[in-house]
Structure formats: structure tokens, C-alpha cells
Design a protein around this nucleic acid. Structure first.
Lengths: 164, 164
DNA sequence: CGCTTGCTTGGAGTGCACTCCAAGTCTCTA
DNA sequence: TAGAGACTTGGAGTGCACTCCAAGCAAGCG
């Protein structure tokens, strides 16, 4: 497989998001547990597992079902993940945490592999998922109100019985 | 099974949340699709399925695994759900939508059956779940930012190619 | 009375997303 | 160079939350 100009453009687009993300979101999180070592572009499967929190099993399974772009191999066939692979896994992990079905992520991965002419469909897919995510946030906040109410009720009951 | 004073108190506490909820949350939703008919306290399983969006299979299964309080039966053994059952199902549905495992909901149902002395543990259980929900909202909002960024990028690409 | 439709049960089946296994190969450290 | 430990594969197994099935009972209608 050769790397075409189109591939490069797509890859750049794909990578840009992950690249700019840590900076934007840094304030939301504590220190990253397993910072990516700088100046390296080769990771064993267990290093990637450690870094992403996915199991090595899951990483192999992702590759089997077409959710990973082709991962480099050593001359003896062992996987060597690149920083770009890690970027991709960061995105996949985010989408997974927001409940996107694996089948949809595989579809998205296919579109990415197919090149630039799938931009429109990718945008559609992500837009649909964004609507989902927004709905789910609303549901969660809905439930949060109920939880607050009930927890308050139980706390009141506790205080009343302790205070007597 | 007799209804004790404790049961009544607990039931009132359980019901209160569901009762006050539609009013509070009405602004967030369109018209309710299947409003509960007034002046009725007897529903067949298919009516409840229609109302809650759960399947009749699922309702029977909820009862089997102890997620429903005992449901009344006709003299021939058919289920007749009460308004209180519907209130309970509303809560269960909310908790389920926010990803509470069924096992945890069953545990909560048990605590409710056991009476007032389990208030503290119920509060704990709900508080733990609330923390979960908050974390998940944060995750979703995190991903929302990434989605916005990527969708924008694709939209820009589309506009650029159309505008040339 | 027969027909249709709805309800009952325990148990089996489904789909998703992993998760593990067995048997063999490779890499690293002493 | 020997041994520990990490890596490989296809396929089987797991856990969750339903989802359906078969066989039978019950209610309402023409």
C-alpha cells in the first residue's frame, strides 16, 4: 500500500483534532496518567494498552474488525503502534465512551480509509452522533434532578431521625 | 402481605419524586406521547408497555429478577399494574437510561422493600450513581467539543470545495 | 361455539462488546 | 545460550440486558 497525497491530507485532518485536543481540554483533567513519551513512534501492544486503558485483547480485536488502520509490524510480525495510531485510538475511545456502536465506528474508519471524497458522509455520521450525545446529556441532566431530589429527601429523613 | 405504616411512608417518599417530576421537567419535553389516563389504577401489561416504551417481555423479566414490587393480579392471574407501579417504572427507566446496571437497580428495589431502616444505604447508592452520572456528563461534553471541531473541519472542507 | 387476540410460564436464544484460551513464536536479560 | 515473559493467531467463551419461543389458558365477539 502506498501513501498518496490524498491519504496525507486526510491523515493530517484526522490528526489535527487529536493534536489540538489536549491543550484545549487540559484544564478539565488532572495530570495524564500515562503521558506519551516524546520522540518515539513505536509502541508495543502492551505499552498501548497501558496508555489507552484498552486491553491488548481489545486492541487486536479492534484491528480484526477493521476499527484500526493497518498497524505496522516488525519483521517477525509483532505490532508496533505509531503516534498516529494513538491519536486514532484517543478518538475511538471518546466515541466509545459516548456510546457510539462499534459498527458505526467501523463505518467511520472505512470512510477515513476511502479518502477525501467521503468527507460529506463522515460529517453526516458525526453530526448524527453529536445529536445523540446532546440528547443523552439532556437525559442525564434530567435524571440528575431526580437524583438530587431523592438524595435530599433521604438526607432530610436522616437528619430528622438523628436530630430528635 | 399487609400494608404497614412504614410501607406507606416509604411509598409516599418513592412516589413524591415521580409525582413532582412532570411539572418540573415539562418545559424540557414536547407533549407526553402516552399520558396516563386519569381516574384509573389498573393497567394491562400491554398498556404499560405502550406507556413506558418497555416491551411486555421486559416488564415480565423485571418482575422475575425482583426489579418490580409485587404487581397485582386478576383472579385468573393476569397482571394489573397500578399508578404506583408506573411511578416506579418511570424511576427505573431514568436510572436505566443513565446506565445504572440492572443489578444495582435490583439492590435499590430490595432496599425499598425492606423499609425505612435502609434509607441510609439507599442514599449512598444514589449518591454513588449521581457521581457516575456527573462524570459521564463531563465525558460527553468533552467529546462534544471534539465532535464540534471535527464537524467544523469537514464543513469547512466542503465549503472550500464547493466555493472554488 | 369457534375464532381471534391477549395473557401466562420457564427456559432458550440473541446481539453487543469484549475476554480468554491454547499452542506456538519472539525478545530481552543474565 | 537459557529461561522468563511478551507476543502471535483463530476460535471459543463471558456477561449483560434483553428478546423470543412453545404450549397453554382466558376474554370478547359474531
Amino acid at each position: 500500500m502506498t501513501v498518496t497525497a490524498t491519504d496525507a491530507v486526510v491523515a493530517a485532518a484526522e490528526t489535527a483534532v487529536a493534536d489540538q485536543e489536549p491543550a484545549r481540554l487540559a484544564r478539565c483533567r488532572g495530570p495524564v496518567l500515562h503521558p506519551r513519551p516524546t520522540g518515539r513512534d513505536q509502541y508495543t501492544i502492551s505499552e498501548v494498552a497501558e496508555h489507552t486503558g484498552l486491553s491488548a485483547h481489545t486492541l487486536r480485536w479492534y484491528e480484526r474488525i477493521g476499527l484500526m488502520p493497518h498497524v505496522d509490524r516488525t519483521h517477525t510480525g509483532q505490532r508496533r503502534f505509531s503516534n498516529r495510531d494513538l491519536d486514532w485510538l484517543d478518538l475511538v475511545t471518546k466515541l466509545r465512551l459516548t456510546g457510539m456502536p462499534v459498527a458505526d465506528m467501523v463505518r467511520y474508519a472505512e470512510l477515513v480509509r476511502e479518502g477525501e471524497h467521503t468527507f460529506a458522509e463522515r460529517e453526516e455520521l458525526l453530526t448524527a452522533h453529536r445529536a445523540d450525545v446532546r440528547e443523552r446529556i439532556a437525559e442525564l441532566q434530567d435524571t440528575l434532578r431526580v437524583l438530587d431530589y431523592k438524595i435530599d429527601a433521604y438526607a432530610d429523613a436522616r437528619r430528622a431521625s438523628e436530630g430528635v
